[in-house]
Computed example of a mutant assay.
Amino acid sequence: MKRILAITLTSTLPFPAFAAGFERPIPQPQTEVAEFWFLIGSIALIIALAAVQILVSRR
């Protein structure tokens, strides 16, 4: 009984190897709204870094 189970398992295990290959996802282009908010976030980060620099330099 164990041999039959072993033969069955070893003969059915390789079947997942025939799965479809990996297809890389194609990135979508950014919209103008996303670029606008990225610009706002970048400017806010620069202002925050400048504020931290001013606060640190006063000590």
Rank of each mutant, 00 (worst) to 15 (best):
I7T: 11
T8H: 07
A48M: 08
T8L: 15
A50R: 03
V33I: 10
L49P: 02
I47Q: 02
A17I: 13
A51L: 14
R24D: 04
L55S: 11
A50P: 00
P27W: 02
L9V: 08
W37H: 10
A51I: 11
V52C: 10
A19C: 06
E32M: 13
P16H: 06
I46R: 11
L5W: 02
T31C: 03
V33N: 03
I54V: 09
I54L: 13
T10A: 15
I40D: 03
I7K: 06
F36E: 14
E35M: 08
L45F: 07
V33R: 05
P27F: 02
I54R: 10
L49A: 15
V33H: 09
I4N: 06
P14C: 04
L9Q: 10
R58H: 09
L9H: 03
F36Y: 13
I46C: 12
F38T: 14
P27T: 01
A20P: 01
I47R: 02
L39Q: 02
I47A: 14
I7M: 13
A34N: 08
P14L: 04
G21V: 08
R58Y: 07
A6Q: 07
I26G: 01
G41Y: 01
Q53L: 13
A48F: 06
E23W: 01
V56P: 01
A50Y: 08
I40V: 15
L39I: 05
S11T: 14
G41H: 04
Q53D: 12
P16L: 10
A48C: 09
A34E: 15
A48D: 05
F22V: 02
V33Y: 08
S57C: 00
S57Q: 12
P16F: 02
A48K: 00
R59W: 14
L45V: 11
I4Y: 06
I43F: 08
A50F: 07
L55R: 11
T10L: 15
L5A: 11
L49D: 09
T8D: 00
F38H: 13
I4L: 14
A17E: 05
A48Q: 05
A50E: 04
R3V: 12
P16W: 05
S42G: 10
E35N: 06
P29E: 03
A6E: 07
I47P: 04
I26D: 05
I7E: 05
S42Q: 07
T8P: 01
A44D: 09
R3W: 09
P25S: 02
P29G: 01
I46H: 10
P16S: 09
E32R: 08
L9R: 06
P14V: 03
L39M: 06
I54G: 02
A34G: 09
A48W: 03
L9T: 09
M1E: 14
F18N: 05
S11F: 04
E35H: 03
G21N: 09
Q30F: 08
I26F: 01
L9S: 11
R59D: 12
Q53S: 11
G21A: 13
Q28F: 05
I4P: 03
R59S: 13
T8S: 14
T8A: 15
T12L: 15
R24M: 06
T12R: 00
V56C: 04
Q30A: 13
F15A: 14
S42R: 09
T31W: 06
S57F: 00
I46N: 11
A6V: 10
V33Q: 10
A19M: 10
F36C: 03
